[in-house]
Design a protein around this nucleic acid. Structure first.
Lengths: 241, 241
DNA sequence: CGACGCTTTGACACAACTCAACAACCGTGG
DNA sequence: CCACGGTTGTTGAGTTGTGTCAAAGCGTCG
């Protein structure tokens, strides 16, 4: 495990919403007791299939995406450790998008009934999880805003700001620096740009001394300027302010 | 009411997911018993505010959107009659986007406690409503795909295909023709384009005999070609196929 | 009738894409 | 240890889709 703590990263994230009792924490631990290792590149959910399983991502990076008939794809989100995936595709009969691991990863499969039991036994915990999924939705909305109305450099800046905040929340970033295994092709598919243009944008960010991406490490040099450029309002990420 | 039936449009939509008992239908009717008229242009929810109320849209058109610092905006979705809005902003402390009426409209405010009671008294109805919100999420995801990876004409085609299917589901479209009060500025803000370019795209669609928009009426002339152009897979809209 | 909201068109600018080539880095196996 | 191939990053030149600016056409309503 990348996180050296006893407590799960999901718990760490949820308590930013509402404090949890020891009982609730124990239940949460139990939900994640079964873990499965998956290799980088492994597709866990395929669009259109009725897998109906949800996952809690324990360690590693993943992405959810949709493929298009013309061969391109759009990445919807990058679940990281502590995130739940596919909670809602348990509801819809078929998964509405695919999901795959971007690095070697560890996941906990959760089936619907187990989740429902949790909700009725520990309503407050249920509310916290619901909050987390609402937060995920809010991120998708913000992502849509980026792709629809921000320039390439703005949306790239915005993306890394959000990522930094998410990682900081679970202790996987050191303020302005963090590991990030996303290559330029993946970034391109997420931000609705070509990989080549991502490269140019990253160069601009570097030359303007705002942010550097180097061998899997992102370093933010000027947080304020970056925020200004991105028009970033992180209120949707942590509900405590 | 635009819909001449006794039953609410929300009910009409939900039964495409799961059949409802008379009791459940009655409960649904009760949820929507209080109605408020709002004028076109009225803003019902403002981003960042803690209104904490949800609405069921009974009649008319609306949009949810986010404004950007630079003065532009991105429209997230177009709720129509039978849609619920802001269910999740009841959970998050603050609304993560604004919501306003695009035409004169009728809405039913629903507060959180009332909704929760419904969920516990009629779990199946709760599941149906949850399904509807999942469907809304799936639409946002598809919207993101459009803006990120489809050309202007493809995404416009896709938009009208989806709209037609939604309206047909609640009986507000006549197969390939329906009323649509969205002007080109609004379409532009939704599709991440300029109003002027929307105009050019609509002309192309007209000249290719695919679709006509004329004085608030949309007519689809060639459904198959339009679907092919859009790469439209409507599976996320009605769960019955 | 004039005013207003919305649509349409043209000319031009620019952001982002494509194609093509090359450079750096990485893990692997000899 | 080095040589190798594959993956990822970098750069330039030219193209194109979409944005911007400016102006005119239309319908509707007061």
């Amino acid at each position: 495990m990348a996180n050296g703590h006893f407590e799960s990263l999901l718990a760490k994230k949820l308590v930013t919403f509402v404090p949890l009792t020891t009982q609730e924490r124990r239940c949460l631990t139990e939900l994640q007791s079964k873990t499965v290792r998956v290799k980088r590149g492994k597709q866990l959910v395929k669009e259109g299939q009725g897998g109906h399983r949800a996952f809690i991502l324990q360690d590693g990076w993943a992405c959810s995406y949709k493929d298009l008939p013309n061969g391109s794809r759009q990445i919807i989100s990058f679940p990281i450790a502590g995130d739940c995936v596919g909670l809602r595709s348990v509801l819809l009969r078929t998964a509405d998008h695919s999901f795959e691991a971007l690095t070697d990863a560890v996941v906990s499969p959760v089936d619907g009934s187990q989740m429902l039991r949790t909700f009725s036994d520990f309503p407050r915990l249920g509310a916290a999880i619901l909050w987390a999924t609402s937060r995920d939705e809010a991120m998708v909305v913000e992502h849509l805003v980026s792709v629809g109305r921000r320039s390439a450099i703005e949306r790239t800046a915005h993306f890394f700001m959000e990522l930094a905040e998410r990682l900081n929340l679970i202790g996987l970033a050191n303020g302005t620096e963090f590991d990030c295994p996303l290559n330029q092709y993946v970034l391109a598919d997420a931000l609705g740009l070509s990989a080549i243009h991502i490269n140019r944008v990253l160069r601009q960010l570097r030359e303007r001394d705002l942010l550097t991406v180097q061998r899997g490490t992102v370093t933010i040099h000027d947080l304020n300027e970056l925020r200004k450029l991105a028009g970033f309002q992180g209120g949707y990420l942590n509900s405590r302010d």
